[in-house]
Amino acid sequence: MPVSACIITFNEADRIGDCLASLAFCDELVVVDSHSTDATVAIAEAAGARVLQRPFDGFRSQKQFAVEQARHDWVLCLDADERVDATLRASIEQARDGGFAQAAGYRFARLSDYFGRFLRHGNAYPDRVLRLFDRRRGGWRGKREVHEAASVDGAVVTLAGDLIHYPYRSLEQQLLKTQRYARMMAEHDFARGKRATLGKLILAPAWRFWRGYLLRGGFRDGWHGLVYAYVRANYVRQKTIMLWLLQNGQPVATPPPAQPRQG
């Protein structure tokens, strides 16, 4: 049963090589790039990937486009900052040898590196994601373009092994990324009619911190777990504040500069 690996990229020259190397067991490598300005495309092509260019219009849309370009119906979807570890590879190969007869899709744990330490507790792990599926029975569906998730019509089985994740190059990059995601989620929720309350403004960030850090054992990851819990709580705070502003008619992003009139 052949498998196509599908990856989306933009300026991932420092990470795409390791990602594709971990997918060497797949029968096809499909990379959908958003016009990178670094060596991403050259590295991907050198690794044997078929690279397609497409302007970025959302994470979900970009990933679904990649799935649709695959030559095989069974697809394995990764981000450039992810790698398949040896145990997960063995689990996928075993399922493939059995013709993927057990399910329409397979999920597995994602293990994230956080500034030199893998987080194994709290809200960070196991963070199971559905990434291997039959595109005839599922895909990247829905309207939400951020925090996107694949879904299938049929059974889903959990595989042993981890998807190794290197999400942040620096704390600055994480803060900028979470702020962008908070804005996108606030705009998505506002468009769907969801509204913030004073209670959520006050309690939601605190609940996110204490749930991850204490109830789910994030403290067991040392200072890494503490910083991670604080930053994730701040994401909830930003998202809720932005939703509050939107529902009160206030902008949450700097508007583009006005274009000079012609003539």
Rank of each mutant, 00 (worst) to 15 (best):
R208E: 15
L215W: 12
Q250R: 09
R220V: 07
H224P: 03
Y213R: 03
Y235R: 08
W223P: 09
A182D: 01
R208I: 13
V236C: 07
R237T: 00
D221L: 03
D221V: 08
Q173T: 04
Q250M: 12
R180C: 06
G193P: 04
V231T: 10
L215N: 09
K177M: 09
F209V: 02
I241G: 01
F219S: 06
G217R: 06
A191D: 12
W223L: 15
D162M: 02
G212M: 06
G249H: 03
T178S: 12
R192I: 11
M185L: 11
V227A: 09
H224W: 03
I241K: 05
T240G: 03
L215I: 13
L245M: 12
W223A: 12
R169N: 08
R192L: 14
G225S: 04
G222L: 10
D189L: 13
S170T: 10
G193K: 07
R169A: 14
G161Q: 03
G249K: 04
L215H: 14
F219Y: 07
I164T: 07
L171F: 11
K239W: 00
A160T: 10
R195V: 15
E172F: 12
L215V: 15
G222N: 09
L175M: 11
K200I: 04
A233G: 09
R195L: 11
R195N: 05
L245C: 10
P251L: 04
A160V: 07
G212L: 01
R192T: 13
R208L: 10
Q173K: 08
N248I: 04
S170K: 09
Y181E: 15
G218C: 07
K200M: 15
L203H: 12
H165L: 06
E187H: 11
H165Y: 01
T158Y: 04
R237C: 08
Y168P: 01
E172V: 05
Q238W: 07
L171Q: 13
K194M: 13
Q250L: 11
A186M: 02
I202R: 14
R237Q: 08
M242A: 10
R183H: 05
K194P: 06
G217H: 04
G249W: 05
Q238F: 05
T158K: 04
I164E: 02
W210E: 05
L215C: 11
L175Y: 02
M242L: 05
H188W: 08
K194A: 14
T240I: 04
R183T: 12
Q179G: 10
Q247D: 05
L163N: 00
F219R: 08
V236N: 00
P167L: 03
G217T: 05
G212V: 02
Q174R: 14
G225Y: 00
T158M: 02
A196P: 01
N234L: 08
L243T: 00
A206C: 10
A196K: 00
L201T: 01
R208G: 07
R216W: 06
Q173G: 11
W223D: 14
Q179D: 12
Y235T: 11
A186D: 01
Y181N: 14
F190D: 09
E187G: 13
L159Y: 00
K200G: 13
A191N: 11
V227Q: 09
G249N: 03
A204W: 00
G161K: 00
R208K: 15
